[in-house]
Nucleic acid binder design. Structure first.
Lengths: 203, 203
DNA sequence: GTCTATACTGAGATAGAC
DNA sequence: GTCTATCTCAGTATAGAC
């Protein structure tokens, strides 16, 4: 029943490429300066277009930021599905954390908009964002329950606590401090974070 | 050689009381809405004075926020000194984390200004703040080395990683999500955070 | 659909009377 | 030192020409 995809005109392709470029630029700036410090002028300058043109693609700064977050959540879900399902759930959770931390260290925006209460609030009322977030959370939740059933998670910790903790690690300021310090490589930072998260600080 | 403290006039006392009230109000608003969302109008309204009067006490919004942070760091240092020095260092570190998390859940501002890149930057160039932060970090660093010597810390984790992680837990968004969820008491949240931080998510 | 130019608003900071 | 009123500026969003 699937129709063949309609052939896209040159103009349409150009339009979509530019839209991707806008999302990329916003992602960088958002990860770098945070939501409020990032102005629409900044984005326009980074992309190399006029500020007014941005509003032909996204109706507001909030909508633009939401689109970036949705794209990130979708990519994360894809990365999660790519993890080999034969491995134990606890290892898949570790793999997921490793992937999200690497993304963050490469300059991506954190998965949780913890740096901006204003953005946080607007996202909570955004349909597309909430769908993506709940969809991803459901998948992670299944893995948590699987790990729980296998006895791989500390019994005293609640499922929701585990879920939030995994999300929270992607916006942990420890990442930025260590990266700014410069004495550890990205790979080393990721390994220490994963290790501390799952096995704790104490020996 | 110490002179007796000069007797304070009624006016001076009133002035200092008001200044404390301003710091208290700012602390609440900062913990609640974050730095950028908190306007000087908000603070003035919360204290019950005119906005212009704020500037007779603090020369700018940044200076006011810095004063709040310095007060918090000093209180933390006092709380740390109050921990009984006979207990093992690792337990004192846990006690410190427990104290800072409780403060945060009671509405205080987090120890790290992770919610605002702008504030973060201005604080890094603020003499009083940096002195307080470095002083406190030095004390915590000593406890970390003591715990390290006792073999109580995971060998693969660097000292600086442990230090940053302890600071970072006070601005962990997991706290707010769990508190907003309402299914856990403050005490339970603190215990899960401390447990997960030192002993990890995995069983 | 992209540009330049501009309207509008919120918020930090200041002036001047009392 | 506190108030009211105002200045100033940055930044979101829109208008209108091409």
């Amino acid at each position: 029943m699937n129709l063949p995809p309609p052939r896209k005109s040159f103009r349409e392709t150009q339009f979509e490429l530019r839209e991707e470029a806008i999302l990329d630029a916003t992602n960088r700036l958002l990860g770098d300066k945070g939501y409020e410090a990032m102005s629409m002028d900044d984005i326009a300058a980074e992309v190399g277009i006029a500020k007014g043109s941005l509003y032909k693609h996204f109706e507001s700064k909030e909508a633009l930021a939401a689109a970036v977050m949705v794209r990130l959540l979708d990519q994360t879900r894809a990365a999660l599905d790519a993890l080999s399902p034969e491995r134990p759930a606890i290892e898949r959770l570790e793999g997921l954390l490793r992937w999200t931390l690497s993304q963050r260290l490469s300059g991506s925006v954190p998965h949780l908009p913890s740096t901006s209460p204003a953005l946080q609030h607007s996202l909570l009322t955004n349909r597309g964002y909430m769908d993506a977030l709940l969809g991803l959370s459901e998948r992670i939740g299944e893995m948590i329950q699987e790990a729980r059933a296998a006895g791989s998670l500390r019994a005293t910790l609640r499922d929701e606590f585990v879920l939030y903790t995994l999300y929270a690690r992607t916006c942990d300021p420890t990442l930025e401090f260590l990266k700014a310090g410069g004495s550890m490589s990205d790979a080393e930072i990721v390994e220490q974070m994963v290790s501390a998260c799952f096995r704790g600080l104490a020996a």
